[in-house]
Amino acid sequence: MEFKSVVGWRRSIRFFDPWREVEREKIQTILEAIYRAPRVLEIDFVRVVVVLRDELSADEMQTLKTPTTTAQLDMAPVYIFFFADLEAIEPACRGDNFRQLINMGVLNPSHGWTEEFAVGTAGQYIRTILDDEDRVPLRLPVGGDSATQIVSREALRLARTAIGIAQEYALLAAVDEGLGAQLSGVNVGAARGILGFPDTWVPSSPMLLGYHGETIEAGGQRPREPFEEDFFELRYGHPFYREPAVVDRLKAAEMIQDPAPFSWRMDEVRGLARKFGLPD
């Protein structure tokens, strides 16, 4: 698919075909996309665990659910869990990744990068982030996951930014592979018990993955605030001019699609509820 079309067709999918497995090569393709996502401060934060629903026990499935994660967890055959490992910051404090990129001509003297700068200034800057006195719990003590480290708030922010970028790459790669996907909340304490991830990993919402159980339009593109309320030029309050010709071009490229709600959406949802034996 073309990039604009991928962006346009992405939806949070909540009805998956529960019986159709996702091919392993498609899962790997998504992981390869995540692997190539931009790194925050060149730190290798991101860790991913792929879970096949059918390899979980009924009890494990049950404990993963939250009151807002209901049918979709049963329906999606694959869960991709995203984490950021705070231990990944330590090599960056030594300037390891920066030096590697200097040797590859990615970071260059033209932009002020030298070995001394990487190890001294840049590495020390990351050290100050890691050791910052403004500290917060690594995870919220919910869902039986009470033991948590107290870490630098800024380091945690960087880690969560890295996860967000990885999740977006994964979502778009899933659409490009013809799959449906949704970032969904789960019980982190239960996930920790099932997956056994280390204390230094920052958890986040997993991506539920599978083939669409609903139409790929999924009721149409979701509403957004008016463009002019969110995008500015020169200064806050001065809207970025939205050129209608560009909008038309993006409609033709399927990035901008018909908005929700479709007239037939509620009939579709009710039909899906009946098909899957769900309440209405």
């Binding site: 209901t70 049963d74 769900l278």
Partner: peptide, 24 residues
């Protein structure tokens, strides 16, 4: 009867208590 079970679920759902039956 799944439909009758779903009527009970529907009652709670529309009162703000999310729930669903197993699908698999």
């Amino acid at each position: 009867s799944r439909p009758q079970g779903n009527i009970a679920r529907s009652f709670l759902i529309h009162n703000g208590i999310a729930m669903n039956p197993g699908i698999l």
